[in-house]
């Protein structure tokens, strides 16, 4: 029971991370295409400014919970995905530093360097997270000792790559909608248009991915075995449709929430379909790392659950407060002041 609760929480942490940092990663990817001058470029940065750091901690927590609740999975998953994880970490380092350093020096080469770093630091994590999760859904070649029999190219299979493209599209639509909320005038128009344009390819890739999921993974069988779980893929599909509907009306907040529902629904569908495995082995089902064969002791799971039940709601409350407080569009006045990126 404790293992199942933690398995669900593990999925929720990833879903929240994708929902929150997803718009940062998407916006960082889109910025060179949306911003036509310095001021617009800075509006994009400051649209993420008060949030990205707090958003990234959800990743750290998802990683930390994997370590704490399922150390057996943490050990095998993180060492098996060594190269993509290292790339992800370096990319996120570059992204974080770019925010802080970019405006601290006037030279054009300085700014361009950090702009390039931020693009890589946004695009690459979106892609890698998609590739990683698609491979986790499908299973990776790990043996009974938890040794990975493959390399980076093992992961770059068609289904993995499609997962990467799916994440990039999900996050860019999500990011464009966020920018439409946080900007005004031409930039907002361009952001809204980008969300609508990218929605088409997203739909195609999402349908293809779901179809391939049917043949490449066991997610559908597992979810169909417990029909109540069908609400998760339905949430994702409804979110996707509503994203386009609300974007068409220019209701950016509603469209962003619909897009959030897509991301959360899709992630939870994947995680629910994995249950009880966190990391299936493609070599033999017995080698899979599951919520039961890789969990911590009941004592640790109980203590951690106590901490989570108290602290996670507190985190949600203060982060929601920050989102409310900084929900207005970025103004020229703020950019002119000393307290903006």
């Amino acid at each position: 029971m404790l293992e199942t609760i933690w398995f669900a929480l593990w999925g929720v942490l990833w879903a929240v991370y994708f929902m929150l940092d997803g718009f940062d990663l998407g916006l960082g990817t889109l910025r060179p295409f949306l911003a036509r001058n310095q001021d617009e470029s800075r509006v994009v940065l400051n649209a993420m400014g008060p949030f990205w750091d707090g958003n990234e901690v959800w990743l750290l927590t998802a990683g930390g919970v994997t370590f704490a609740a399922f150390p057996g999975t943490y050990a095998v998953m993180f060492s098996s995905l060594y190269t993509p994880l290292m790339l992800l970490l370096f990319a996120l380092i570059l992204r974080g530093i770019s925010f802080e350093f970019r405006g601290k020096e006037d030279a054009a080469w300085w700014r361009k360097t950090w702009d390039a770093c931020m693009w890589i630091g946004s695009f690459l994590p979106a892609l890698l997270l998609g590739v990683a999760f698609a491979n986790i859904f499908a299973g990776i070649p790990i043996d009974g000792e938890g040794v990975f029999h493959g390399n980076l190219f093992t992961l770059l299979n068609p289904y993995g790559l499609l997962g990467g493209v799916l994440f990039v599209l999900l996050f860019t639509v999500h990011g464009a909608l966020w920018l439409a909320i946080k900007s005004e005038g031409q930039l907002r128009d361009r952001a809204g248009a980008a969300a609508k344009i990218l929605w088409g390819p997203l739909l195609i890739i999402a349908v293809t991915f779901l179809a391939m999921t049917r043949y490449t993974t066991r997610l559908w069988q597992n979810v169909l075995a417990k029909p109540v779980l069908l609400v998760l893929p339905l949430l994702a599909v409804a979110g996707l449709v509503l994203t386009r509907v609300f974007a068409g009306k220019g209701s950016w907040w509603k469209a962003w929430f619909a897009s959030s529902a897509t991301i959360v629904g899709a992630t939870l569908f994947g995680v629910a379909g994995l249950y009880p495995a966190l990391l299936p082995s493609s070599l033999a089902p017995a080698f899979s790392k599951t919520a039961f064969n890789s969990a911590s002791t009941p004592l640790t799971l109980k203590i951690m659950l106590g901490v989570a039940l108290v602290m996670v709601p507190v985190v949600i409350v203060y982060q929601a407060w920050v989102y409310r407080r900084f929900s207005d569009p970025v103004t020229a006045e703020e950019l002119a002041g000393d307290h903006a990126y």
Binding site: T61, G64, F67, A68, A69, T300, V307
Partner: peptide, 9 residues
């Protein structure tokens, strides 16, 4: 692992 996860939370 539990100590690190608590630190994050």
């Amino acid at each position: 692992g539990a100590l690190l996860a608590i630190e994050a939370t």
